[in-house]
Design a protein around this nucleic acid. Structure first.
Length: 583
DNA sequence: GTTAGGG
DNA sequence: CCCTAAC
């Protein structure tokens, strides 16, 4: 809430949070797109499962579904999730043929390229087993990069349901294709990274490392196998019967769009397999007092004398990635587009968050043991990882397509989805609801953040320069137009304090509005003055009541006059002093 | 760190 | 909203 220090003096009470933090103008142009998102709040996600967790997790199918208690009051979801997983497990899981990878296996190489991490301790071989069992594509898979999309698209927005090459967590890896070992670059880069245990405090076992990829792929994106399907409306995601082609894992996702933490069970053999939430990580924990962890990448192994806690991040999803693409675009370009969007989404501004028993652990220097993450601690029952923005604003990428036919390409992610990850955060300016009295941001604030615009017409020349632009603007804060009530509060404060005292204005009227800096207020005042001076027809954005604009002009005039007279006085003083000095 | 102003 | 100069 806005501080009432000023407000009370002026008897003003009307201030409230702007209902919607909006995306930059570039995003707002895509109204149709936003509409999709609004109408279909949570129904058109691209789920990117990036994991190396293999069929290992499903060695014991029946035990997978066990869950002791509802997580954060979403019991129903959990139950459904379990059911779904179970079903697909039964349907899709196949016996696995063991394959052992040598230490120098190209598989390791491929892992190192990946964008996400999965946590394993000495389990690479097992992972590989599941990978090796990968079969060919299923009916959903589109292999031909040059294939036209048209046959599958009815003119509505296409929503991609993307999966990485390896999606073992849902037991469907038998359907996915293992990238050609040893030929990674040409076939696609694995979306997974293994991070192995370390002994020191800061690099705890089971670290999740979203790979920061400042530069989205320039040439052929390494997208790997993706499943593509269209949806026309949200309802299409719901009943499975309407989509005979929808795989069980898909239903699994469709039914579980809501955010909730992923529970980690203490025992490897009894894992809660609740579906991961957006930005939440599915983890698994293994207990052992003395563990041998092999570091495949370095061909080394070590024995730790410490008690080790093994964590396993099974997968996580990228939420609400919307893609709009001409039906004449090729499948390859679509894949590239998705890859870029996903890369962008994950590349910048994300860090790993950790919650123990629902409480955020901010101190990175704490040991796991101090945090309560130890092999014999019950806290392991509620260990949550999350991906959260590490910077104030999500990355805005704008790679402007040149071709007219490709104008409307705009993958969008709904940033509100990560809101609840930040539920206890007050340090993020991303979500005004947080600092304005805990409104339900998911309901009231849906900043649509464009994460990428992809040039589908292969007009490479412009990409370079645009890329550098992207990097330059990567940390630009999200645009958040002032609401009328904010303007009112600002006007009130300036009326009282005058211009030129922006820090005080901030403290007086916007103290708790973390996303409004005094520079912002100063800038807003500047634009308000300008707005008040121009004709109403020339004004843009949410109309500011004329009454307020009048007050702006009045205050501006008054304080300008004050400054003038002040300066005049100073000048007089100076000249008098000079005159005195000359005498 | 604040303020002012251009971009 | 960003950047920077000036204080």
């Amino acid at each position: 809430m806005v501080s009432h220090k000023c407000v009370e003096e002026f008897g003003y009470r009307g201030y409230e949070l702007p209902p919607n933090a909006r995306a930059p103008r570039s995003a707002r142009k895509k109204r149709s797109f936003e509409k999709i998102c609004e109408d279909d709040d949570q129904m058109c996600p691209i789920d990117l499962l990036a994991t190396v967790a293999g069929n290992l997790l499903f060695e014991s199918g029946s035990s997978l579904m066990s869950i002791d208690k509802p997580v954060n009051g979403i019991e129903d979801n959990c139950v459904v999730a379990q059911t779904s997983v179970k079903e697909e497990f039964e349907e899709e899981e196949k016996p696995v043929k063991p394959v052992t990878l040598s230490d120098d296996s190209p598989y390791q190489e491929s892992l190192s390229h990946c964008g996400f991490s999965s946590v394993i301790s000495g389990k690479v071989e097992n992972e590989a087993e599941s990978f090796s069992n990968s079969g060919r594509s299923d009916s959903c898979q589109v292999e031909d990069f040059s294939q036209d999309l048209k046959p599958g698209i009815d003119g509505d927005a296409v929503v991609l349901d993307a999966r990485p090459n390896i999606v073992a967590s849902l037991g469907s890896c038998s359907r996915t294709e293992l990238p050609t070992v040893g030929n990674v670059p040409s076939h696609g880069v694995r979306d997974d990274v293994n991070m192995f245990s370390r002994d020191d405090d800061e690099n705890f076992s089971g670290y999740i490392c979203p790979r920061v990829n400042k530069k989205p792929p320039r040439t052929v994106p390494r997208i790997g196998d993706r499943r593509i399907r269209k949806i026309l409306a949200s309802r299409h995601w719901k009943g499975g019967s309407r989509h005979a082609d929808v795989k069980p894992w898909r239903n699994h996702y469709l039914n579980h769009q809501r955010n909730y933490p992923i529970k980690i069970r203490r025992n490897f053999d009894h894992i809660s397999d609740s579906i991961s939430d957006d930005y939440r990580l599915r983890t698994k924990i293994h207990r052992g007092s003395r563990t041998i962890s092999s570091r495949k990448g370095q061909g080394a192994s070590f024995v730790s004398s410490d008690s080790q806690v093994k964590l396993r991040i099974k997968s996580f999803r990228v939420p609400e990635l919307f893609v709009e693409i001409p039906e004449t675009a090729t499948v390859g370009s679509l894949k590239r587009m998705v890859m870029e969007a996903v890369s962008t989404l994950l590349s910048d501004g994300h860090r790993v968050g950790l919650m123990v028993q629902g409480k955020k652990v901010r101190d990175d220097n704490k040991t796991l043991y101090q945090t309560g993450i130890s092999q014999d601690n019950t806290h392991l029952d509620s260990l949550d990882f999350s991906l959260e923005p590490s910077s104030e604003a999500p990355q805005l990428l704008t790679s402007y397509p040149l071709g007219q036919a490709c104008e409307e390409l705009l993958p969008v992610c709904n940033a509100s989805n990560i809101d609840n990850v930040l539920e206890s955060d007050h340090d993020s300016a991303l979500f005004p609801s947080d600092s304005f009295g805990k409104k339900s941001a998911a309901d009231e604030s849906k900043p649509l953040v464009p994460v990428a615009r992809t040039d589908m017409s292969h007009q490479q020349p412009c990409r370079r320069s645009k890329r550098s632009e992207q990097q330059q603007t990567a940390h630009r804060r999200i645009r958040r137009p002032f609401s009328v009530s904010e303007v009112e509060a600002l006007v009130l404060a300036v009326e009282k304090l005058g211009t030129g005292r922006w820090r005080e204005v901030k403290i007086c009227a916007f103290e708790d509005a973390d996303h409004r800096t005094y520079v912002d207020l100063k800038d807003k005042w500047k634009t308000l003055v300008h707005t008040a001076k121009i004709s109403p027809q020339q004004r843009r954005g949410e109309p500011v009541p004329q009454e307020l604009l009048d007050r702006v002009l009045n205050a501006h005039g008054y304080w300008s006059q004050q400054h003038e007279s002040k300066n005049k006085q100073q000048q007089e003083t100076v000249s008098q002093a000079e005159a005195l000095l000359q005498l």
